[in-house]
Amino acid sequence: MALTSRLGFCLGLLSLGLAACSRSSGDARHAEAFFQDPVRRPDHDAVLVLMPDTEHTRAVLLGIRDEVGDELDVLVRPVDRDLSAEEIEAMLAELQPRCVVLMDNPTVKAYRELQLARPSVTFPPAVVVMASFLEEHYRLVKNATGIAYEVPALTLFTHLRTILVSPVEKVGVVYRPAFRGYIDRQRELAKREAIELIGVAVPQHPSVRDVRRALETLRTERGAHALWVLNDNGLLTPELIQRAWMPLNETGRRVPLVVGAASLVSAKFDFGTFAMLPDHGALGMQVGALIFKLADDDWTITRPEIQPPLSTKTVINLRQAERDFKLAPTALSQVDRIVN
């Protein structure tokens, strides 16, 4: 497969936000069993989970069931990108959940459309998870809390320091204007661990030249020790990866690239050095803990907040990392998957 095709494939998966994990429809019977409702217990409250059926959403669901399944009835409805507000309304009327878990952007969008269409209706609290850049958007959903899907820079680079011998004190990031608020918040958080996050903005529709120039500024003029690659499709087109990101380390001082999707760390092309992404099972457990907090507060959101994902998984491109950087003696004990 040509490089561009391989990149296109990986980026196609990235654009789904749920990389490399869509399930075929062939195992429908298995899916039916997996999503089967528990026998409703008369004295138990119900939680409704609306989710697309992917490997990652299933891992999150498993974590939720492990966490709250003994005490709450977890009812699951697999949904697709065409989910309508009317369908959600019918589910809420039928199942009467005390809380709704919304996974992935289209699900959140449909739920929000329902809220807009029924402004006088009081909706159960919603816990949003696996939605892109949730901190920017969650206030658009009434009565919602949740967990961000992006691993914070603070987490990424504190962990990277345990892997690399070289210092990780200045981290560069290229971003588009829409992400400025997000980057500002990440910069403040990173200061807690004495990490300086240096951002260089590019236009909303950046050219190869724009991204190249931003990367070179970060590496050469600003002296970044590592680069953080946002999960922003506008910065990760096959053309930009192939002509702006990948050539960066072909000349000059090499800097590790930390990406947010496992599909971007591959032995077949030299792009991400490390990927750090949420541990989906642990993410489900974190959702469960939020649900219990809601239950403790009589199903009201008293502390509206978006938590960061606390648990992550790390993938390393070992060939690239060993070739270009000095790894700590215990580095490999700190990664979950080695690509070689």
Partner: peptide
């Protein structure tokens, strides 16, 4: 009690003041 699944996650509870 705030629970996490791994030892390394505990540091994040402190970092994010949770």
């Amino acid at each position: 009690v705030e629970r996490v699944t791994k030892l390394e996650d505990m540091l994040r509870l402190l970092q994010f003041e949770m």
